[in-house]
Design a protein around this nucleic acid. Structure first.
Length: 514
DNA sequence: GAAGCTC
């Protein structure tokens, strides 16, 4: 696959087109702005064609290039009276708070043409991905990513709203195909996410001739040892921290030509107890040889602790944030199910999830530990319930196989640890079960809000319907659940009798799944 | 009592 893709030409999105070239804005350092789309109209047209992409763009008519001038005055106008009722009809219709740095004005990209992408890349979007228009986060973030001086960006957006496209397109459009060196690097918290992102990249970039490589561990014994490996010449590298660190350590990953560094699930990648040290090492390795590398941080969640750290890593960058109350927990319907004991939990899986699961699509059952994943799997399999499970002790080959079979729809129920809590994008997943609620290690009465939100986000991809069933057994479970409700300001409905078919049916109907 | 990440 050779093709010439000229170095990206991200021009033309530099300034807001309509509306008074701001005079005030220029004097302001940080302009804070709220880009608001109106409450949505019924959406579904796109949901049906979205298929296995979470990134499907909305298909509704759009206003001619509205300006998201990052200027308070402009936006005030935009916000208050400009109807935009006919604007993007998307799941993430809500406020995104944008804080820009410096004087660059950005307009929103109402179409992909607005971004001045290469024809090969546009073809990838339309033909390869079957996209129509940028989603909201795409329309706002892509101009920021592509417009010189290529400022760093921290971007928060809802689960299933199309974040992947933002950074994949960012990477693809900045690569010089003639230069046979790594120019874009994307670091992900799990093997599964790295693979998924690379697949999106290859699909979207299939007409560009851009080369890419996956940096995740190989099966032990196969492949050449790292020290014998030739230096990476692929133009885009996507992988996990360990392998990327290893390649860097052996001098196989040149960083001189790197133009763009992406952290997917960035809050976790920069969290203490997450991958902070690995991430900082990579950043330092790049800074040593390279002064002009754009850094992009994407996630659906940034808690306050991480947020303050993030702004120290990425200073002088643009920022997009969403209020926690608006983080899309409303597209999936949440329920709590009181289970008197573990047997009741298993019964609910058997008699309700397996019973109704097929009718409503696929299901992911989240458990807290590897051993409970294996135990639950075995208990179900023993009685002939067909499912698979995935967690960190399963070897890589089998992990890949389990994911592949699930993606092909061969399996309907997948038991998982939090290995799949973040980012895993499978549009047929309409049901999420929290067999165990996520809590902070060493603080069992403190919910892990981020993990909870990410797990829920596996259902209802790109605005589809979805339901989440939280199994509550102990007093502590109720404490966790109450805190979760308060934190997100959401009412979680109760299923009073775990044995009642009727109550589950009603719940699924209320969620729009039956 | 944890999940994920190189060898």
């Amino acid at each position: 696959m050779e093709n010439e893709t000229p170095e990206s030409k991200p021009t033309n999105v530099t300034k807001s087109t309509e509306s008074t070239e701001s005079t005030e804005a220029e004097s302001t350092k940080n302009n804070s702005v709220e880009a608001t789309a109106k409450p949505s109209e019924p959406r579904r047209a796109w949901a049906d064609e979205a298929d296995d992409d979470d990134e499907l763009a909305a298909s509704s008519p759009s206003p001619a290039s509205s300006s998201l001038g990052l200027d308070l005055d402009e936006l005030a106008i935009d916000d208050s009276k400009k109807k935009k009722a006919d604007s993007l009809d998307e799941p993430e219709d809500s406020n995104i708070k944008a804080v820009t740095s410096g004087h660059t004005l950005y307009s929103t990209a109402m179409t992909f043409e607005d971004l001045n992408l290469s024809t090969e890349l546009l073809k990838g979007l339309y033909v390869g991905m079957n996209f129509k228009r940028p989603s909201k986060i795409q329309s706002i973030s892509l101009p920021m990513i592509l417009t010189p001086p290529h400022k760093d960006l921290v971007a928060q957006a809802h689960n299933g709203s199309g974040k992947t496209t933002c950074f994949v397109l960012g990477m693809l459009s900045r690569v010089d195909v003639k230069l046979r060196e790594p120019q874009a690097l994307c670091i992900c918290p799990t093997r599964e996410l790295a693979i998924q992102n690379l697949e999106v990249l290859m699909k979207m970039g299939q007409f560009t001739g851009i080369t890419s490589v996956l940096a995740v561990p190989e099966k032990p014994g196969v492949g050449v040892p790292t020290h014998k490996m030739p230096p990476v010449t692929a133009q885009i590298v996507i992988g996990t921290p360990g392998t990327i660190g290893k390649w860097l350590g052996h001098g196989k990953l040149g960083m001189r030509a790197l133009k763009i560094l992406v952290f997917d699930e960035a809050d976790h990648m920069l969290a203490e107890g997450g991958f902070r040290d690995d991430s900082l090492k990579v950043i330092k390795a790049i800074e040593k040889v390279n002064k002009h590398c754009q850094v992009l941080l994407f996630s659906a969640t940034f808690n306050d602790v991480v947020k303050s750290f993030v702004s120290r890593v990425v200073r002088d960058g643009n920022q997009l944030f969403v209020k926690k109350e608006e983080l899309s927990l409303d597209v999936v319907k949440q329920y709590k199910v009181h289970c008197p004991d573990e047997l009741a939990k298993i019964s609910v899986i058997r008699d309700k999830i397996f019973e109704y699961g097929d009718k409503v699509g696929q299901t992911i059952v989240f458990v807290r530990t590897r051993t409970s994943a294996a135990a639950l799997h075995e208990s179900l399999a023993k009685d002939g319930y067909v499912c698979t499970s995935i967690h960190g002790t399963i070897d890589h080959e089998n992990r890949d196989k389990v994911v592949k079979e699930f993606r092909e729809g061969l399996t309907k129920v997948l038991i998982s640890t939090d290995i799949l809590a973040r980012g895993f994008d499978q549009s047929q997943v309409n049901l999420v079960v929290n067999y165990d609620l996520p809590f902070i290690h060493d603080h069992r009465a403190e919910p892990d809000y981020e993990v909870y939100l990410h797990r829920c986000g596996r259902a209802g991809r790109f605005g589809r319907k979805g339901a989440v069933f939280n199994f509550l057994r102990t007093d502590n479970d109720y404490v966790l659940m109450d805190k979760i409700q308060r934190h997100f300001g959401h009412q979680v409905h109760e299923i009073h009798d775990w044995r009642s078919d009727q109550q589950f049916e009603d719940a699924l109907k209320a969620a729009g799944l039956l």
